[in-house]
Every structure is written in C-alpha cells, then in structure tokens.
Design a protein around this nucleic acid. Structure first.
Lengths: 110, 110
DNA sequence: CCATAAATACGGCAAACGTCGTACAATGTG
DNA sequence: CACATTGTACGACGTTTGCCGTATTTATGG
C-alpha cells in the first residue's frame, strides 16, 4: 500500500487549512509539534475510535501536514515541518502559537 | 437584523481556519487585505450566485474574520485585522503571504 | 499454529457544506 | 408610483464530513 504523500510543491493552502480546522486533528498536530519525534497513531490520547483516528490521520497526510511511515504493525507519524515552512512560511508557527493559548492538550500518554 | 459578530475573545481558531479553507472565501479575504477599505459584497469578482456569496460572507463574519456593516442597500465588508492579530498573532499574515504565492486573485472590479 | 496488537478497509449514518433558484425586503432614482 | 440595485431568506440538491461498528490485514510473541 502506497501511503500517498503529496510532494512539497503539491501541498495546497486550502487543504492544509481544512485539515487544521478540526479540533481533533489540531490536537494531533500540536502533540507532534511538542516533541519532534515520531509517534504511533494510538498514542495521542484522543477519545475517538480507531477507525475515526485512521480517518483523521489520512486527512492530515493527504493534505501534506504529516508524514506517515510504516514500521512493523505500527505507523509512525511526524510533522512535515520543513515542507510546510518552505511552502507557507510562518503558517505552522502561527497556528501552533495560536492554539497554545486555547484549551490544553489532550492527555497524551507517551 | 442583528448582524452577529463574535467578540474578539470569542473568535475560535478551528472556526477561523475552516472559514479560510474555502478558495472563494480565501479570495474574499485576500481582496479585503489588499486595499484596506470597505467593499460591497458584489465587488469581489467571484463567479457564484448572490445567495452563495451571502453564505460565504456569513461564514466569514460568524467566524470573526470580517466585519459587516449596513449602509443603504449595501453591506460593507472589512477585515478584522486587529482582532485577528491580537488573538492569533501572525496567522493572518502567514495565510495571506502563503496564498499570494498561489493562483492570482480573481478579477475584482473596484 | 494461535493469540495479540496496531492500524486499515468498508459500509453506514446523521450532520454540515457549497451551490443554486426563487422569492422577498430595503433603499435609491426616474 | 414603478423600477432598478443590493443583498437576504428559505428550501432544495448532491457531496463531503466526522463518527461508528465490524471485518480484515500485517507483524510480533507464545
């Protein structure tokens, strides 16, 4: 299975904004941004089903916000920070700074 | 009719991101940002129906992105730049800079 | 081989979205 | 007054969204 990721130049602003416009996905991105290491899909402390989680991760990946790579049975997620910064300078930082002022992050067990 | 605008502190990030995630609305915001004066709803050169236009302006207004005030039969739109900057510093600038690199603005007759 | 763990795929469902058409209200202008 | 201008209200439509449950895939461990 391909794990389709858009190339850097294919990342589109409306799609990124839409991907970030959901609280669950925003929480995922915040968690990924906090400690810049790869995380399994199940380690984000979100209170939704695994199927729903899969859906959100796909939206983020297809928008170009996150990178997913397979390792064993797990799927490791990381933020595409460089690509996003290159394409939309300052956007990610502004979003992260903005939601840092809002509700706290979900209890995400490491 | 009330013309409901959220107060500055009521503006929510996911809602703003969602409002900006539509190409038509993004075009509206870009146009408003280019020359910081008030514009009528019909003056944005968008190729959608008036009803659709009304819908998009309402989404932007209720998200706290634009201000609308009535004057005669017209409705004058302006960007809530200060409120957005106060609440989400750098966000608007990043979005505007990002889409400036993309497709050009619709032909918006003054 | 069997069981467990991590995540997907598929299908379904209610709600929201973007769009439109028609009808309507409010304000000018002849 | 009649008429054009500007925009809303309402209802409709097809699509997408976010969510779930169940079945399935793909490794890892006994």
């Amino acid at each position: 299975m391909g794990l389709l990721h858009p190339g850097r130049e294919e990342i589109e602003l409306p799609r990124v904004l839409h991907a970030l416009s959901d609280p669950q996905r925003l929480s995922i991105v915040r968690t990924l941004a906090e400690d810049s290491c790869e995380r399994r899909c199940g380690s984000f402390g979100l209170e939704v089903t695994k199927s729903t989680l899969t859906h959100h991760f796909r939206v983020l990946r297809e928008a170009g916000v996150i990178d997913q790579r397979e390792e064993g049975t797990a799927r490791l997620n990381s933020l595409r920070r460089e690509d996003l910064d290159a394409r939309f300078p300052g956007l990610l930082a502004a979003v992260l700074a903005s939601c840092a002022l809002g509700e706290p992050l979900a209890a995400s067990a490491g």
